[in-house]
């Protein structure tokens, strides 16, 4: 058995999710190789080599890999994957975009967003927005898996001393070209890695009012999230969405403000350690999962809470 972990990065720095995937890979008790594909991303390979538990780093650089287009990456990963028993990536937008393409080329099933590893071929994954857990067994020679970061502790960033080996690039023909990326600028912590998350919903009523959420988040050093309704209404950008079809978070403290608690939203946050709900409707479903519920008008309660934390 040998495990291949596909690194996620921006050509300069490794994304934290990769250390969670390496952490998950530890369950197989087999050597872990990290594959870094990108353009001028030697620094990323060096970073990966330091991760505890990594025994090998493969570095493949080419201009065609600059934007992680799956058309370019998948054939290269397939060529390398043939000598591994498991191929893992984070269940991020990038991982979800890429790994099914790899699996189909290998003619194997892909196992999405696992939350537990029972054995090298048995995995647990949430289905129906997390309202059921499926335990599945794969008989494929190569198991291609995306890993939910919040379910696995990250491997330590240091302690490893893997060798970095360069592999010649052979990008796939693409038909796809990168035009641009507009990334939300934020000085706040990353939503999926933050210790505290403050999320706002439709109850906020406007983008302007979302400043109440920002102020509370700033006081707590928290990341800001949102419900789908808040994103759809244009209060905040799409990458704030928490839920079945958005991001999955599991912070120590999750504060839901003006969010009703639809199953699709709960799917993204119900594994948070402590949940606080502020909602004016005492029957809102969010109170069914909240450790502490405050039935109140958010326009009074949130500024009061922000002030109380000063």
């Amino acid at each position: 058995m040998q495990t291949l972990v596909i690194a996620e990065h921006d050509n300069q720095k490794l994304k934290p999710v990769t250390r969670h995937v390496v952490g998950a890979a530890g369950a197989f008790g087999a050597p872990v190789t990290v594959l870094v594909l990108g353009q001028d991303c030697g620094a990323v390979a060096q970073e990966a080599a330091q991760i505890a538990g990594v025994s090998n780093v493969l570095l493949v650089e080419d201009a065609a890999y600059a934007h992680a287009l799956p058309e370019a990456l998948a054939p290269q990963i397939v060529a390398i994957a043939k000598s591994y028993s498991h191929v893992l990536a984070g269940a991020t937008v990038e991982g979800k975009n890429l790994l099914p393409r790899v699996a189909a080329l290998l003619d194997v099933a892909q196992i999405s967003e696992i939350t537990a590893i029972e054995s090298p071929e048995i995995f647990v994954r949430p289905v129906y927005a997390g309202n059921a857990l499926a335990t599945v067994q794969s008989a494929d020679a190569i198991k291609v898996i995306t890993v939910r970061a919040t379910a696995f502790a990250p491997a330590a960033a240091t302690g490893g001393s893997a060798a970095v080996q360069t592999v010649a690039a052979a990008p796939g023909a693409s038909g796809s070209s990168f035009v641009n990326r507009s990334l939300s600028q934020s000085t706040r912590p990353d939503l999926t890695a933050a210790r505290v998350v403050v999320s706002g919903g439709r109850g906020l009523g406007s983008a302007e009012n979302f400043k109440l959420i920002d102020a509370l988040a700033d006081k707590l050093g928290a990341a800001v999230g949102a419900s789908r309704a808040a994103v759809d209404a244009g209060y905040v950008p799409n990458d704030y969405q928490v839920g079945q079809t958005g991001k999955v978070v599991a912070p120590e403290l999750y504060i839901a403000v003006g969010i009703s608690g639809a199953i699709q939203h709960l799917a993204g946050m119900s594994n948070s350690k402590v949940i606080v709900a502020i909602n004016k409707d005492p029957d809102a479903p969010i109170f069914g999962v909240a450790d502490y519920g405050l039935v109140a008008d958010l326009f009074q309660a949130v500024p009061e809470l922000t002030a109380a934390l000063s």
């Binding site: 934007h67 991020t92 937008v93 796809s176 990168f178 990326r181 950008p237 799409n238 990458d239």
Partner: peptide
Amino acid sequence: EIDGGLETLAL
């Protein structure tokens, strides 16, 4: 819709 915002591709 990507993790950090939006990305445009030409296919």
